[in-house]
Design a binder for these strands. Structure first.
Lengths: 246, 246
DNA sequence: TAGTGGTCTAGACCACCGC
DNA sequence: CGGTGGTCTAGACCACTAC
């Protein structure tokens, strides 16, 4: 039998899982660029010393988990989830002429400070470490739909403190990638309903005490380490969310 | 080459997809019992005249889609999604001693009548056909958490009109299966926020005008034909929903 | 122990893509 | 056209379950 060159983190694990883990590490570490195709199946079978079927099973699981995308005849690519689209799942009134619009952003505040304990815990921060806080308002057709409070570990996102708040683009995730080399791969969201405080109500153009939807999101990298914590509030009136259950 | 015995709905489709389609038809039609294991891989490869790898790929897709469950050493089984658990994803205050409780049910009303057009359309009903409407209240610790308005096609669920409302169990889906032979395989839900009308508010023990979460569910069979339409309302205060995005 | 699904191999040929 | 992923085969051996 040919000697396997798969890193043997745990010999008891099936081959295809060890291959999968190694490929995932290459994706997380940035060893494979997100713009080009990853090595071909033939190259990877040679590299790992496994059969095509085994390699394909490893890739299959990564595709199923949303890390990779195959394209017949072109190659296999690292996939970034389109979180813009996930925003659209939440709110109505975001169509114009049958097309979704990306909500406009207005940065209200950006500071370096000590986060609340709950945020620090979610981001796995050490006690008293500092974090970047960004507050911004998101608008569709100049109407406020979402008020966001974003927290980022200072150690990994320091570059964000060096650009002027006015120069922030509407979408932050591409900025995280180009400026800080951090790719958001997945996120966990929790939805609840609350009533608007007077300050929030004024910013969102509703009456204090009116119901608002609260979305708490923890965004993770490919290695499932937390990168961003965000709490968004929006008028409940505009809210709509769709799921499929199986 | 051995002649394939796979029903050739469309010769252009890959073999494993044709096998998958035929297996799905057997699941939907009830030809395979939901209690026992389906035929073994060896039997199925013989029956369809395909290689093991091809058959496994067909089964893999059905497992991925939540139709089947494999259990090493025991067999492969038809899977019913646990919709009870899906209810728990929605509301807090449903734990007692670390364990989930199934909400109690109180049937308020059960009639045979003509459904609103939106419901009739969702259920693919012909014009003026009748449907069964069930209203019920769901309670946790004797506290109302959900008010449900359920619509079912009369043709398929006639058996439900023959038992006394008081004899309805807390969970309806097992009843659909045993009494009507209908298995719910998946559902699509849409969440919005509204304010309570005076009648609903009284039933739920809250004040009129307080925010309520509205969940509209369309439940489907294995063949993806609509079987049940349900609109639930519950106090927004108790609402919590979690999702993972990828 | 017999039977199940789980893993793995080493090929073959096909369909699609970009040049 | 050459290279990519997509489909398919016909086996082998392993791990788990039930009896």
């Amino acid at each position: 039998m040919k000697k396997s060159t798969v890193p043997a983190a745990d010999d008891r694990l099936p081959l295809y899982q060890r291959v999968r883990d190694d490929m995932l590490a290459r994706i997380s570490s940035g060893e494979w660029q997100t713009t080009a195709a990853i090595p071909t199946e033939g190259e990877l079978t040679k590299h790992y010393g496994v059969a095509m079927g085994t390699l394909r099973k490893a890739i299959d699981t990564l595709v199923a988990d949303g890390m990779l995308e195959r394209s017949q005849g072109r190659g296999t690519f690292i996939r970034r989830p389109s979180f813009d689209a996930s925003l659209f799942r939440f709110f109505r009134h975001q169509m114009r002429g049958g097309k979704h619009q990306v909500p406009r952003s207005r940065i209200l505040n950006r500071t370096l400070t000590t986060p609340p304990v709950a945020v620090a815990a979610a981001l796995h921060l050490l006690k008293k470490s500092q974090a970047i806080r960004i507050d911004r308002l998101r608008l569709v057709d100049d109407k406020p739909v979402l008020l966001e409070e974003i927290w980022l570990p200072q150690t990994e996102f320091a570059a964000l403190m060096k650009i002027a708040p006015a120069d922030f683009p509407d979408l932050l995730y591409p900025l995280y990638e180009t400026l800080c080399g951090k790719v958001i791969a997945s996120a966990e969201e929790t939805l609840t309903v609350d009533s608007a405080g007077s300050h929030d109500a004024e910013l969102m153009g509703i009456q204090a005490g009116q119901p608002v939807v609260v979305i708490e999101r923890l965004a993770l990298g490919f290695d499932r380490h937390p990168l961003e914590w965000c709490r968004s509030r929006g008028p409940a009136e505009d809210f709509r969310y769709q799921v499929e259950i199986r």
